[in-house]
Amino acid sequence: MPPPPAPAPADAKTKIALDVNGEPVEVAFAPHKTLLEVLREDLSLTGTKHGCELGECGTCTVRVDGMPVLSCLVLALACAGRRVRTVEGMAAGGKLHPLQDAFAELGAAQCGYCTPAFLLAAEALIAGNPRPDRDDIKRALSGNLCRCTGYIKIYEAVELAAARMRGERAEPTPESLYGVR
């Protein structure tokens, strides 16, 4: 049996390499830091937000190897060699991702604080299910709290973006933008 690697002193910084939004990154931090803390504090990626740091709200959602997870409960050290995707990685070449575009169009981001998390959770949903129905969306987003929108504009935006990502020419319905008049 190989001897266990000698533990680093608890607070000394440990360096890891990982892929963040398609870029190779090396970062050093105290070993007990969460991915959330390292993203925000050591990589200046403040697009990832937090509302509880206990796994109770979903606001800190990022994707690790494609899977949406709660960055407040992921140890950054456990991400060595992995692919991390945050909201900063979504818009490409100065163009909004279709989900971002639909969120903007429908007003699905009110205060915008929960928005990065919803976008990443929705992106993962569509990746696995390009044609999600309303129930699929509700279930996939049931781990993300939003206090502003009542979720409805978020559902509509995910539906709209999914349709556009399938290549359909979809537009928001007048009722969703103007209500029933």
């Binding site: 925000r40 697009g47 971002q100 969120f103 903007a104 169009e105 007003g107 981001a109 928005t115």
Partner: peptide
């Protein structure tokens, strides 16, 4: 009209700076 909010792009890209985002 149902226009995009002037800060919509900042909000959906996570670039809106909330107080805790200031360092």
């Amino acid at each position: 009209k149902a226009l995009r909010k002037v800060d919509a792009a900042a909000k959906v890209t996570g670039t809106t700076k909330f107080a805790d985002d200031l360092f």
